[in-house]
Design a protein around this nucleic acid. Sequence first.
DNA 1: TGTACATCAGTGAACGCGCGTTCACTGATGTAC
DNA 2: TGTACATCAGTGAACGCGCGTTCACTGATGTAC
Lengths: 182, 182
Amino acid sequence: MRRSRQEKAETHDAVLKRASRLFRERGIETTSVSDVMAEAGLTHGGFYRHFANKDALVAEALRETFDSILSQLETRSREAGAKTAVGDYLRYYVTKEHVTHPAEGCPIPTLAGEIGRSSDALKSEFSEQARRLIAAIAEGFDGTDQDAREQAIRALAMRVGAVLIARACDADLAKDVLASCR
Amino acid sequence: MRRSRQEKAETHDAVLKRASRLFRERGIETTSVSDVMAEAGLTHGGFYRHFANKDALVAEALRETFDSILSQLETRSREAGAKTAVGDYLRYYVTKEHVTHPAEGCPIPTLAGEIGRSSDALKSEFSEQARRLIAAIAEGFDGTDQDAREQAIRALAMRVGAVLIARACDADLAKDVLASCR
DNA sequence: TGTACATCAGTGAACGCGCGTTCACTGATGTAC
DNA sequence: TGTACATCAGTGAACGCGCGTTCACTGATGTAC
């Protein structure tokens, strides 16, 4: 039952994409290796042909998640300019759509809590990705580089907090939180 | 070995206070009933004389946590006025102290992610407590009630996001995030 | 106030369960000639 | 190009472990008289 190199690469990619969605939807600790493999149509045993352990999957899935978000942002930026791209992203960030569909959304509100309690290696991976996102958002702001970066951090932080709170609230309060942070 | 009514109440309170700290420090899912009981100097078996199940502990501990924070805020508000009390709280929120000591800090950055994925009952409890905190923070802002409330939500959301991100980052990025959100 | 009995706070062994990880196995793919 | 053998992707049973929860038990507290 050995698979070709290409088939292996396809499996690896599929596992990563399923993991990326599941982690954002259910959290890291609450998503099992078996869950991820089953979602990719496989059994859990084969997992260790692709990843050293669950931590390695988490790190790789995190990179994959940010890669996907950043590449969308860059594409839109080339099409319509950085200001529009960033404006659209920040507008989408505080929508009901984003709050109710974490699997397709930003990993920060869902995963940052758990990452904060995990290994330095994962924190370091997260930091790298967060820096990239902040830099991309800063492209949409005016002023000196330093100034734009600070504005980007504030814009992101407020929206991360808003989505985090909105997801933990009843519909009524969630609505107020989103409206106030628009 | 039966204990008096007062001793039972003291035990209940101790368990709640330990749970409040542990949940904020390690997260809900990652803190076991045994951990909490051991921290209170007891064995796990007695837990069910105090709580129907772990969910009930989580809900009660969440209320206890917010009660404690709000009572501190109110005391300070009576001493120095709402503006100063709220100003102090928001300043403390984005300090290194708060980032590195989650056990004594606000439960929102640590627990909101997990609460968002849990039962409606817990979300409803969280919503009630969040509304109280928002109302207390709004006391420190000017304008109409509606206006002050929206400012309070924005101020809280940005700081929740900042602390959440800072805890998941390396020291370098954490510093920038806190500085930008001050 | 004293006594007899019921109650129940806390203990520690035990339960079923799902977790991350390991491993012997299968058979198609990769490689060396 | 064909053949023989080594490799290894994926399977599914098995592992040790810690979890939430249950339960028989102990003996001090609470209550009824």
